[in-house]
Write a protein that binds this DNA or RNA. Structure first.
Lengths: 204, 204, 204, 204
DNA sequence: CATGAATGAGAGTTCATTCAT
DNA sequence: GATGAATGAACTCTCATTCAT
């Protein structure tokens, strides 16, 4: 009875092909130019075919978002090996930045794009986003317990740190920092991050 | 030769009228609902007329960006009255946030939107943006001179602070923080900002 | 040669399954939502399969019409138990109305919809419809014989009565009588029917 | 200042051209085949142009309905010259039938089509329809006052008469009476109508 | 026999832009 | 200088139907 399985696998493959095409279009032409037609053209199928695999445009975007969130969460998990919470927080920041700059189009979709969570998700969708935020909150909490951070509320601090890294990568992704040559980007960004985190994390 | 001058002045007036209408539409209906037709309707001219004053839609958006940058710069200038550089930096952050949250669509256009500077100047445009960044850099430099900040490069620190505030407001504007109820927003944001700046600015 | 017979019987069974599903869709979702895909989904076959049993969508609609006519004819037959022709005529009207209001989408298909008998028989089809009309004609004829109706041609009278009930139910089905609240519908319709029939059927 | 007027007149002319094309399409191809694109093709304009004169497809249908209701009402008004209410009622029926058979596509739109009064009208629209119904009700009332009709409620009787004529014409328009050759249609229909009305209207 | 992936045509609608007046 | 009617290309989405497997 491998038939049903094969069918399902084929289906998933086709979904993936569509998602890949959509993602490419994001990179090449930007969010607002991603249309069902263009996706269909890119994969050399008819527009109708896309609808066999995705209910509508939103579903495609949501699927891409989920892929992004899953990958980001996966990267966060690796951090759990780091015992020192301050060190972990610094690594956290670098992981965030690295993820964003390696997958700018996914990051854009997840955190920048004008939310396409019109119809269905809102909950399921963001739950998965919240999961990642919670990992950060826990990290901050550990830092507080270990006295690396002595004042402030967990939420405010977490939001601050998140904003810091989000601000950096979104200025880069949306090309608002022409002053930094591309080749120094990562170094520059990490310097900024290190500076702020160094100030926040007191030597105890 | 007053005729040519008058003509030019009339022309500028009309451009302003169009830009005002466009800006109102931004505020009232959001970026994606701004169409040439709607702008024309609002000023009670025909769509064709708009094209007599602006080459295309992009040119209107760019002009609006400039208006935004000018207004933001104006607000920054007020800060020059504050003598204590640390205090000034804190005020700087609040001014930034206030500007963004009061003019979310304009802010979006200036700092978030996928740049519509496709066919247009790219440089002229950003010069004006850089001017504002420089005001921040100077403020940071003052803080370093006055020993409020003891380590780090001016550029990295400036970028960090900018990223922090940009990150906060852009997460809010693009609705990525469902966890904060709208009424606590400003307080929460300022708490985060104060926390980070307090850590950065050492008591000397 | 039982094989051929079995095949034919299987074929008829499958046709019936498809028609049942189609009819359910009619009732549940209305004419315009009946698509081949939905029918196929409902019976858990593929769209292609439907085409093995029916040439096209029209053929399904025609088959449904026939089912409708058969059911209506069946209901008419029950009337033959009523001996008094005047009484029978009144019952006839009520049966008609009841059938229509109980199966509005089917009735619509049979008597209102722009005929889907485009490519199809036109005659075979309507023969079966005529059969029902003839039952009415006979009833009218009986009434004339029994002196309940004293003047007029059978055809004109039959057409008049048919038009009356068809007019009532089709105004209702196509929602052209906002003035009657739904709960009084049946009562109101029967009042109208009784009035007209009372006038037509003289007390002899 | 005839310019504004001319503009308005041109506009109305274009609307009329569109409406005429739509009406033709109704006749030639039936309601469900009337599409914006086909209308545009027929008048040799682009689809977008149609939207300059009508908000959406519904508005076109509603405009046609209104035209139909207006014309029908106009014809009803002529009846007011007839003093004898019984005679007037008979004329009323003939006017109704004549209007329907002379303008089958309009009639279809007004009374048969699955109501397209989705969004806006419902009220404005049917008010105008009700106006015509009221003319009938008044006629019936006059008949009752003058003792041509001795029993029954005005509403039930009016509904009965309306249903009768509506039933006749809609069976014809939707081609459910293949048994009558087209050339005898009017005569046959009037015979039926006269029969029923004769029974209803007692000689007093 | 049955599948179901794929299509092609077409639905309604929107909008930046042009051009004859 | 201003008009505004008109366009053409684009959009998302639906569906009857076909055909290789």
């Amino acid at each position: 009875m491998g038939t049903a399985e094969r069918k399902e696998r084929d289906r998933q493959e086709m979904r993936q092909i569509i998602l890949d095409a959509a993602q490419r279009l994001f990179l090449d032409e930007g969010y607002e130019h991603v249309t069902i037609r263009r996706i269909a053209d890119k994969i050399e199928y008819s527009p109708g075919t896309v609808y066999l695999y995705f209910k509508d445009k939103d579903e495609i975007l949501c699927a891409l978002q989920e892929i992004g969130f899953a990958e980001f969460y996966r990267r966060q998990q690796i951090l759990s090996g780091i015992k020192n919470p301050a060190e972990k927080l610094r690594a956290h920041g670098r992981v965030y930045i690295q993820f964003a700059l390696e997958n700018p189009e996914l990051y854009d979709l997840m955190f920048i794009i004008r939310a396409p969570m019109n119809s269905h998700p809102k909950d399921t969708e963001w739950e998965i986003g919240m999961r990642s935020l919670n990992v950060l909150r826990e990290n901050v909490q550990e830092c507080m317990k270990a006295n690396f951070i002595k004042v402030g509320s967990v939420d405010a601090i977490s939001f601050g740190i998140w904003s810091l890294v989000h601000g950096m990568v979104s200025l880069i992704i949306r090309e608002r920092i022409p002053m930094i040559p591309a080749e120094h980007r990562t170094a520059f960004v990490e310097e900024s991050l290190d500076f702020v985190l160094a100030e926040i994390l007191e030597k105890n």
